[in-house]
Design a binder for these strands. Structure first.
Lengths: 214, 214
DNA sequence: AATATATTGTTGCAATTGCAACGTTTTAAA
DNA sequence: TTTAAAACGTTGCAATTGCAACAATATATT
């Protein structure tokens, strides 16, 4: 997975951040960054911590749009963050570098090798983000909870080339990701277990239905 | 909306395409490009025509992942097109320029101004694609058909700053986009009409519930 | 270690939804 | 212009789902 500063040396990284007039900020856990990024057109780079981009709809339902860990990036542009329905919430103490998006696009000093490298890394990361979002769309366009789960399992097992699927956080979060009711998901997982298609050991799910792994 | 050759003159465009060893191909309507792009790592630029990226699942359900018109781009990288479940289908006679993705990322001649401009355009387009995908995710994460429709209407009306929402293709395609059954959508649209929330005139939907427009 | 908080499993029930099957209308092709 | 194909509207019905509520674990905090 490409990171935003890959192939850029520490001295060049400093020069780059100076060139782009980057600013570093720190936030306590459970802070909202909405007022901070509102009306701005910025690229953020998480240097430490964990942040969620969420959407709160009229009924107060919160959808996790994206999760951001160390070295992840986000853009007010790409996440509709200028919209008031969106918010950035730090789930841990977090450090973020902010860069004015226009500085990236319209930099005059753009012939520097590290600047070109930065743009390349950005392209790679954006491409990867699109791939991830396509993946989620594939999954949640499935019509039944069962098919959503199976699609999710298939993608995850292909990724790791294994019949084991590990739930990275909680089943509650998984239900969120799949855009289904948690209890209904729990019920369907039980069905899949009873039909002998899967086995669940804590956060590890074992796929028993795929010929490839039997 | 940024296009891939924005701010690049025709002569420079020619130079750029030569530099990137681009190849132009033409395809008849209703062709599958799967075998063509399989195992490749390419960026495609539609110069003429209309193409759909679709996914066919185990039950033969087809999901439209993306629609591509003139000057749109696609990448085997970002669309999991290397996966056999995905396909590119031309819906009209189509002309496509193919560029080896690695040539874009690892070009040695990368200090040329038009090359930098190309990368900037690419970043803008990718950013826009992410925004679009986030939008669709917001919509289809809604739990009921009614809420999916209303969310779709809200986003569309905000975009055009108007109480009119125009269905660009067909209601069948809209149901696809929203990942719901067409007849069930039809039923819910009828309910919305009967409750006086909307009015439908052909492909034009009039929103009657939003204070902003009344 | 004790307490508070979050996660998980479960289930009844009402509401929503997909599906299938029509006939009708519109659009495209021959 | 005639014919074929696609899109649309409708509805009964069975299946799926969300919701609410609760107890039981597990995790985090003091």
């Amino acid at each position: 997975m490409t990171k935003i500063f890959d192939f850029i040396s520490s001295p060049n990284k400093r020069k780059l951040l100076y060139l782009l007039q980057a600013h570093r900020f720190t936030f306590n856990k459970d802070s909202s960054l909405q007022s901070f990024v509102k009306n701005e057109n910025i690229l953020g780079i998480i240097t430490k911590g964990y942040v969620q981009i969420i959407k709160v709809d009229a009924n107060d339902n919160r959808t996790i749009i994206e999760e951001l860990f160390e070295e992840d990036i986000f853009g007010t542009n790409m996440s509709s963050l200028k919209n008031k329905d969106y918010d950035l919430i730090t789930k841990e103490d977090t450090e973020i570098i902010f860069i004015d998006y226009d500085k990236i696009i319209n930099n005059e000093d753009n012939n520097k090798a590290f600047y070109v490298q930065f743009q390349k890394n950005l392209i790679e990361i954006l491409t990867e983000k699109i791939r991830e979002k396509n993946e989620r769309i594939e999954i949640i366009t499935q019509k039944t909870i069962r098919n959503k789960l199976l699609e999710y399992f298939n993608i995850a097992s292909k990724k790791n080339n294994s019949k084991f699927v590990y739930i990275s956080s909680t089943f509650t979060d998984l239900a969120d990701y799949l855009a289904i009711d948690r209890s209904a998901m729990s019920r369907e997982l039980k069905n899949l277990k009873e039909e002998g298609l899967i086995e669940i050991k804590g956060k590890k799910i074992i796929l028993l239905y795929n010929d490839k792994w039997i």
